Structures are given as C-alpha cells and as structure tokens.
Amino acid sequence: MKKSHVIIAVVIVATLLLLFAMSVQIARLVLGDGVINSSGDGIGYVEVKGPILDSGETVKQLAEMRKKTNVKAVVLRIESPGGVIGPSQEIYAAVKKLAKTKKVVVSMGSVAASGGYHVAIPAAVIYANPGTITGSIGVLMKLSNVEGLMDKVGMKAFTLKSGKFKDTGSPVRPLTDEDKALLQGVIGNLHEQFVKAVAESRKLPVEEVRRLADGRVYTGEQALALRLVDRLGTLEDAVEEAGRLAGIKGEPTLIMPPKKRKFLRELLLEEVSGIFSAAARRDGGFSVNYELDSSMGDTAR
C-alpha cells in the first residue's frame, strides 16, 4: 500500500472517531446523562456549581428532594464564587424551605463565597475545608464609561428618557452625585438584606455580622473561628454527618436528582441568550451581584 493511501486511511479513521465522540456529546446534551437514583432510603445530593446566574434547575432539584419520602436528609455541595442576587436569594429560600422538613448539610468545596455562602446558611450543619474560600459578604456593582473612547473615534450618543434617573449607569455619560447616592442606597439596602439573612440563619448578632460583612473573604479555618461555618471536613464527612442526622446506619446511599434533559431548541436559545447578554454587558448594561470581585478570580455576591 502506498504511503499516501496509509495517510488518507489514518485521516479517515481519525475523522470518524472524532465524529463519533461529537455525536456522543450531542446525545448527552440532548437526552441528559440519565438518572442516578435509589428506591431505598438514602441521602439526597444537590450541587451548586459555578457562578449563580439562574436558580430554576437548582430550586427544582431541592423541591424534588423535599417531596421524596426516601430522602431522609440532603447534602448540598457548593462550588461557587457567587452570582446574581435574585437567583441567589431564590436558592436560599428553597434551601430554607427544605431545611424545615429535612436536615440539610452543606459541603463547601474550593470556594463558596458571596452568593455561594448565602445559599449555604440555612443548613443545619456547614462543612468547609480548611482552605475553602468563603465569606465575601457584600454587594458589588460595576459600571463603565466609554465617553473618552467615543470621542476618539468621533461617535456621539443621544438618550431620550422618561425621568432623570432612567439612564443611571449609562456608559456614555458620567455619574452625577445624585446617581451615585441613588445606586449606593440600592447597594446598601441589598447588603443589609444579606447581613440580616446571615444573622438570622447563623444565630449571630446583627452588629457582629455587619463587622464581618465588609466584603472580605475568609478561609475555612477563619470562618469556623468566626462561626460562619460549623465544622472543618470533606464532602465525605458531610455525607456521613447527614447519614447520622437521618438515623441511617452504615454508609448512606446517595440519591441524585434527575438531570435536566436539554433539547436542541433549548441549547440554541441558551447560546443566543448568552450572546445577547454578553453584548448587553459590553454596551453598558449593569447588574448588582453577590460574587467575589473578578480581580480575585471571582464575581459579585
């Protein structure tokens, strides 16, 4: 066989293998990864991973764990730097509702800060690793101004509005003192909501939480000393604790929520939505968040 024929054959085989791998990935996206579950008694397991931008799927999973009679307690694994305030508050409310009927044990991974910490606080027990980054109790708003850039390229912007504050935060005009006071008032109110939620859930004096809630992060060890978490330990420790609280003898079975099945239409809509959201941010749209600051590898509340 000629060398060129061998090369062509290798390319064809490699292409077929690549197409097969791509088809498997597409099938997983469209059909979901299946349901890992158990008909016997066990411990429910729910994850909060990545920036908190939407609450729908997590709230649904927590509701399912609340309704399942064979779920005797729930482990909530958090690996999140925080995110948007509204979805964080919705997940917090869902965890709080679940905790009224079943024991919830939180396991913090490498980071559970800001909104990631907010969703953890209704739990009966919060585990963190000694090196977990947590805390960051605060609210962040980022704004940009592109007037200088527009002047350089000879662009002008015009805004028609129904009230003087309607374009507050616009990237094409400077913030006035009134704008700043208005936005600072919004941030202050949202921050106070966060502080009160922590004080209530962790049974700490509000003034003590205010002192801790200046946006700084804490390690798991520091958070334990400040009573922001309950124990140091791994995910395995959290699962064992949930089993003990539920009265399950031996190693508890993990009951996973069914994963959302995504159809091609949904995937396309998500992609388009992501493109428009990115464009809106570039064009000066702003949001108030709970993430860690991006300069620390994290986002706002």
Rank of each mutant, 00 (worst) to 15 (best):
G215Y: 00
V229C: 06
P205A: 10
K203G: 10
A238I: 00
L235S: 12
L228P: 01
L212I: 13
E236V: 06
A223H: 08
V239A: 06
V209L: 05
R210C: 01
V229G: 06
E207V: 10
R202D: 08
L232M: 12
A223T: 07
L204Q: 11
D214A: 11
V217R: 12
L232G: 12
Y218A: 08
E207R: 13
R227K: 15
T219W: 10
V206C: 05
Y218G: 07
L212W: 08
L212K: 13
L226V: 09
L232A: 11
V206Y: 02
L226I: 09
L212E: 13
V217G: 12
L226M: 14
S201P: 03
V229A: 09
Q222V: 08
V239T: 05
R227M: 11
R231E: 15
L232C: 10
Y218W: 09
G215N: 00
V229H: 04
L235Q: 14
E236L: 08
L212P: 11
R210K: 13
R202W: 02
R231P: 00
E236I: 04
L212G: 14
K203L: 09
A225F: 02
K203A: 14
D230M: 05
R210T: 00
E221W: 05
Y218P: 05
G220A: 05
T219H: 10
V217Q: 13
S201E: 10
L235V: 10
G233L: 08
A213P: 11
G215V: 00
A223D: 08
E208Q: 13
R211K: 15
R210N: 04
K203W: 02
A238T: 01
V217C: 12
D237Y: 00
A238H: 01
L224E: 09
R211Q: 11
V209D: 03
R202I: 05
L235R: 14
R231F: 02
A213D: 14
D237F: 00
G215R: 01
S201C: 06
D214V: 09
R202G: 09
L204V: 07
K203Q: 14
L212Q: 13
L235F: 15
L224H: 05
G233W: 02
L226F: 06
R211D: 13
R231S: 07
Y218Q: 07
D237I: 00
A223W: 02
L235Y: 15
D214E: 14
R216D: 04
A223P: 04
R216L: 04
V209M: 07
E221C: 08
E221R: 15
L228A: 03
A225N: 14
L235C: 08
L226H: 10
R227A: 14
D230P: 04
D230L: 07
E208S: 10
V206R: 07
E236M: 08
V206N: 06
Q222F: 05
L235W: 11
L228Q: 03
Y218I: 06
V239Y: 03
L228M: 08
R210W: 00
L204K: 11
R216P: 03
L224K: 15
P205L: 10
A225C: 03
T234W: 11
L235M: 13
L235G: 12
R227L: 10
A223R: 07
D237N: 07
D237H: 00
V239I: 15
R231C: 03
A213Y: 11
E207L: 10
